[in-house]
Amino acid sequence: MENVIELQHVTKSFKGFQVKDLSISVKKGFVTGFIGGNGAGKSTTIKLIMNLLKQDSGSISVFGLTHDTDERAIKERIGFVYDENIFYENLTLKDMKKIIRPAYKKWNDAMFHKYVDQFELPLGKKIKTFSKGMKMKASLAIALSHQAELIIMDEPTSGLDPVFRRELLNILHELMQDGDKTIFFSTHITTDLDRIADYIIFVNNGEHVFTKEFYKIQEDYAIVKGPLDLLDADTEREFVAVQKSNIGFEALTAYKDRVADLFGEAVVLEKPTLEDIMYYTEKGRCLNV
């Protein structure tokens, strides 16, 4: 299957933070959710993909091209939505459109106005009067109006109310009807992913933890609950992290079937949420350091 985004052994260091040997890929025609806690390296990775940051080492390709030689061709085909405002606060959305429109060869004005109507955005009001959600919608309207093949979004749902979050998912579903489009977005509202994400890429502390099909996660991982006497140095190795209390333990395993065989009826296995997985992975890292 064709990869739209490919990072190979990418490293980027800042003061007190590092993206370490990151190798990830995003498949064409699918929605990939990008998860990880604060400071996990999500925004940094997105900035690296957009060439807002330059990697210290490793290679990054988008549509099989690199920014060194084809920066404009790549960006022509990307629609982007960021977590921060990137519009002139003192201009109206209409003015912003006038500035952005000539940058793209394939701008579609009718499409833009369709989304502006759908999102109920005021064209004539200054951006600084917009709420966070409206700014995000404005970004989204622009991102969807130049026939981009790849939509990259950094925390798009964080400023949105639940009603519009659902509406956004409908828009994304609509977009995915055409099998050539690819969506890559980071989020920490993991429930959004249940309805749309085909693949999940999970990073933690600047490192890649896994890339999996969404349904595969629940086949591999499980929350295990059981009595404390089952735990010893050997059995604890089956878990990402264990949380103990007076009445028993709760743990996350990445080897659901093996744990089921090992403990049998002595434990209860439950479907983990993405939040469970993020929580235990972070906890496990802290213990191992």
Partner: peptide
């Protein structure tokens, strides 16, 4: 229905209907 259509109608991911 196409798997993408079905995914949209059921509000689930394409990869699930694909599988």
């Amino acid at each position: 229905p196409s798997m993408r259509q079905l995914a949209k109608d059921l509000q689930i991911s394409v990869i699930t209907t694909k599988r």
